[in-house]
Structures are given as C-alpha cells and as structure tokens.
Nucleic acid binder design. Structure first.
Length: 420
DNA sequence: TCTGGGGTCCTAGGACCC
DNA sequence: TCTGGGGTCCTAGGACCC
C-alpha cells in the first residue's frame, strides 16, 4: 500500500502562514518575472483564475475581487517543504519526495495497522507543526494513491484522507466516475488518443489490453493502465536516485540586445547551476547554453539556439563552468535581436569520485578549496556575497521582476516575522 | 506592455559497426 | 528482375509531471 501526501494550494498557504490576515482571502502566486499564475488559493480558483494564465489577462478579475498577488518566494516554499517532509518522516521512514509539495509513502512495512488512522494522524501533525494543510490518498499502487488523493481533495472526508476502496464494485464505481485525463500520467494528448479508441474513463483504461495501450501510446502509459487495475509497477524511489540534468534559466525583465547584459545573465545561470551541483556532490561532463528571443512577438525576428560542449574532466568548479558557458554563449549570440531568455544546462553527471584528466592544466585541489571557501562564505553571509565579476554588479537591465515578494521569513534573520 | 522554470521517460531514425 | 542480417549508440522530438 502507498500513500500520497499532497499539500493543499501549497504556495498560497505558505504565504498565509506568516500573514494570517490573508486567511480566506483569494491569493495568487506568480511565476518568475511576475508573468503567469502558478498557484491559487481555493478562493482564487473559485473566481475562475486558471493555472498558468498570464497575469495581464486577469488584471480585471484581480482588481475587481481585491485578489492578493505575490511573486514566488522559493526560499520560503522550499524551507516549508522541508518542514512538511520532516514531519511526515516522523511517522513513515520510507518516502519518495516527488515534488516540492508531494510525498509518496511506502505503507507496506505498516501492514496490519489501521492505515487510514495513521494517515489522519500524519495530516493532523503536519498541520499542527508546520501550519500547512495536506490531503492524503491511500491505494495499492502509486497511480491509485494519486487518484485517491485527488478524491480526498475534492470531497469532504475526515482529515482530508481518502482510501481507495477494496471491494470490487466500489472500486469499479470510483474508477468509472474518473475521466481518463484525470489519471496521473495521462495528459491531454493521450486522453484524446484514448478517447479515439473508445476509452473515456479510468475504469475503461484499467480493463484495456496492456499491449493495445502500448501500441497506441507507449510503455509508460501501459504501466499506468496496469497500475489502475491494482498491480503495482513502480515502488518508492528512495533518495539514492541521482539527477541527470540540472538547468538554470530565466527570462529577462527587459529586452536584452547587448552582449554585455546577456553575458552577465549566462554567467549568473552558470554560477547558480554549479553551486547547486556542488551542493549535491556531483560533477558535470557536459554543459549546454541556450538563448531565445520572445516567441510571442511574431512581429520580431526570432533566434533560438543552443550549443553544448564536453567538460573534461567533469567538474562543478564555478570558474571553469562560467568560462565555458560564456564561450558557448558568445558563439550563439547574434547582434540586432531582442533576446528574452537564456539558460545553462549541466548533464552527464557523475557523483562521488570523478575521473581525473592527464592533460588538464588546472590545479584541482586548489579549485576544490576555493569552491569550499566561496560556498562557506555565501552560506554564512547570504548567497551572492561572493560572486564572479562576470555576473556584473548592476543587473537591473536583465534581471527578473519580482514586485510582490513576501519576506524570507524562515531563512533570513533580518526578515523574521515580528509580533507586536 | 505583459506570456515560468525544472524535471523524467520513451521512441524513431540516422550513423555507424561487422 | 534481382541488392542481407544483426547489432549499438546517439539525438531530436514528443509526451508526461509539478
């Protein structure tokens, strides 16, 4: 048995915890650059604000309903996420952190216990210890736990916890009332294709011949269909899984048409990516850089390009990665285009021991020590205290807009919440 | 005027090998 | 008229997720 614990309207509720006056008010949280709506409180959902909607399209609704608008504050959300996970770990040791607001729990070691009761206790404790409300779905496979979670969120169940039924007729009735596009792993394209072959509900998908699903879609969809029928194909993936790619990218607050600005942005992405990778103990064997113009401006000339290069030896050393990123970026850059976005991707990772190189002219021991000092200073004094000059000092001409950001209540001393 | 960022997996097709 | 069989590796693109 598996449980999926999912935070309700996570970003919106994080904003509320430290600002109780926002309780019951409609809240939306915006993407980087304050561009799109990426999270909504229940009240905002009821007002018809859509996920992913560009914010300029709902200006009128926001104004008319006095909706609270926040820029995304990942320093806060990530720290709250960590607290929620730690609270769950208090009860269940085997978990898989699926996203910033979702955790799968392996309940198999708890066989024989009242799982419903256990999950309700977890829910209460998380709320009490962190202030974050969660919903819990329980099922014999991860796909069914996910579906149960969806039902828990919709209905009014005790402590927002719902267990997928055992009895065959109940099971069938739940599955038949679930449209196939609400199944985890079936998106809009695939649900259209499934509709085309007469499959409209989760029940119909669970009864289909697996080979047919594989033929019409692919092996992943086949697995989803099998999981719907109650046979588990995927277990809990513990923390041993190591990432394969790492991307840092951002669209610009203003149009960028000078290499000087673009180079600072690329260097900044490279710095952030390298820092993140070092934090995970990894090294990258390949780096890619991409630059893009604004795809929505059909009236402007478009230029989207990317380039990549091997890193030999694999590395997470900031100066090496910045230098290579700038070299690639310079190759891509063309004057007289209005650029909107750039990014750096690291891939072909190794973790632990890194293969050295006979031909490198860098002193790797010195590099490691330099990075340690830099990371320690930035950890202690705040990130960005020490940074390469290539990032630039005045970044106002390209950095993102964040006009409505709440304080980093839990990770900065000077931004602690105050009581009167 | 304004339109996010960060991931995973699978498949088909091309290039190459003997 | 007729043009093999079997394999690996890489990449781009498409689908999905939050």
């Amino acid at each position: 048995m598996y449980a999926l614990a999912d935070c309700n309207n996570f970003y919106a509720n994080c904003e509320r915890i430290f600002e109780p006056s926002l309780t019951r008010r409609p809240i939306i949280v915006l993407s980087n650059n304050d561009g799109c709506v990426v999270a909504r409180s229940q009240e905002a959902k009821l007002l018809g604000i859509q996920m992913g909607q560009p914010v300029f399209q709902c200006r009128d609704v926001i104004k008319a309903n006095n909706i609270v608008v926040r820029s995304s504050n990942y320093a806060l959300y990530e720290d709250m996420s960590r607290r929620v996970i730690n609270s769950i770990l208090h009860y269940v040791p085997d978990v898989e952190i699926y996203s910033i607001d979702e955790v799968f729990c392996d309940l198999n070691p708890m066989a024989g216990r009242d799982l419903d009761q256990l999950c309700r206790t977890i829910r209460k404790s998380v709320l009490q210890w962190t202030g974050v409300p969660i919903s819990v779905g329980i099922g014999p496979t991860k796909t069914l736990a996910k579906l149960a979670n969806r039902i828990a969120k919709k209905g009014s169940f005790v402590d927002s916890t719902y267990s997928f039924p055992n009895k065959d007729e109940d099971r069938k009735s739940v599955l038949s009332s679930c449209p196939v596009d609400e199944v985890w792993g079936i998106g809009s394209r695939w649900s259209k294709r499934l509709n085309g072959i007469g499959i409209r509900t989760a029940l119909e998908l669970s009864l289909a011949r697996p080979e047919d699903i594989r033929r019409h879609l692919n092996a992943t969809a086949m697995q989803t269909a099998i999981e719907l029928s109650g046979i588990a194909c995927q277990g809990i993936e513990d923390g041993g899984i190591q990432r394969k790619t790492l991307v840092r990218s951002c669209s610009f607050g203003k149009v960028v048409d000078q290499w000087w600005d673009m180079s600072q942005a690329i260097a900044s992405h490279a710095v952030r990516a390298a820092e993140k990778l070092r934090g995970e103990g990894g090294a990258a064997g390949r780096i890619s850089v991409f630059i893009q113009t604004n795809r929505f401006r059909e009236d402007l000339r478009q230029h989207n390009a990317s380039a990549s290069a091997r890193l030999l030896p694999s590395t997470s050393v900031t100066p090496v990665i910045v230098e290579e990123a700038l070299r690639l970026g310079r190759q891509l850059w063309k004057p007289n285009y209005a650029y909107k976005k750039s990014g750096v991707m690291l891939s072909e990772m190794t973790f632990g021991q890194v293969q050295g190189s006979l031909f490198s002219d860098r002193n790797s021991e010195q590099d490691v020590r330099l990075m340690q000092v830099m990371d320690q200073i930035n950890m202690k004094m705040g990130s960005g205290t020490l940074y390469p000059a290539a990032q630039g000092v005045d970044r106002s001409s390209w950095s993102m807009r964040r006009s409505h950001c709440s304080p980093r209540y839990t990770t900065r001393w000077e931004e602690l919440p105050r009581t009167v």
